[in-house]
């Protein structure tokens, strides 16, 4: 398992969502909001094009934690704020730093950035270490 001592950085997750990831995620999640699946609609409402689902991006933040922790059941909680918008075909970078560790639980501060902008910020994961 990754080092979860205070101040440690967890492995950085980098993923470039492909052009059609929002369509696959819509199917998998049931969220067919047209801002995610309809290029014309998205542009009509002033967006640069179809945008990523916030919860897909949150799933990348969750994946960074579970991969570092080694087992999915170690992720006890995750809280995020969404800011701005994520775009397909732009690299997403998830960075995570252990803020606190006590009583067999680590608290990890984590952010997701695209093009240098934090699209998930003020996020905290709670990881069970035992």
């Amino acid at each position: 398992m990754t080092d979860f001592t205070v101040g440690s950085e967890l492995p950085v997750v980098r993923v470039t969502p492909d052009k059609f990831v929002t369509l696959r995620y819509a199917g998998a999640s049931g969220d067919y909001n047209p801002i995610h699946v309809d290029e014309g609609f998205a542009r009509q409402v002033g967006l640069p094009g179809r945008i990523l689902h916030g919860l897909w991006t949150m799933a990348q933040v969750a994946r960074a934690q579970t991969e570092a922790a080694g087992r999915p059941q170690r992720l006890r909680s995750l809280r995020v704020q969404f800011r701005g918008m994520g775009l397909p075909e732009h690299e997403l970078v998830v960075r995570s730093t252990v803020r606190e560790s006590s009583g067999g639980v680590a608290w990890v501060d984590t952010v997701a950035e695209q093009d240098g902008q934090q699209i998930i910020r003020n996020a905290t994961a709670e990881i069970a270490l035992t």
Binding site: A59, T66, P72
Partner: peptide, 28 residues
């Protein structure tokens, strides 16, 4: 769809080997 590669989510045999009755749903 979310890019998970841990076999406990994808492969029944791997999930069973890890002590689960079937594939595990990722937390999200």
């Amino acid at each position: 769809a979310v890019g998970e590669s841990d076999p406990v989510y994808l492969d029944v045999e791997a999930a069973r080997a890890a002590g689960h009755a079937d594939v595990v749903a990722p937390p999200m």
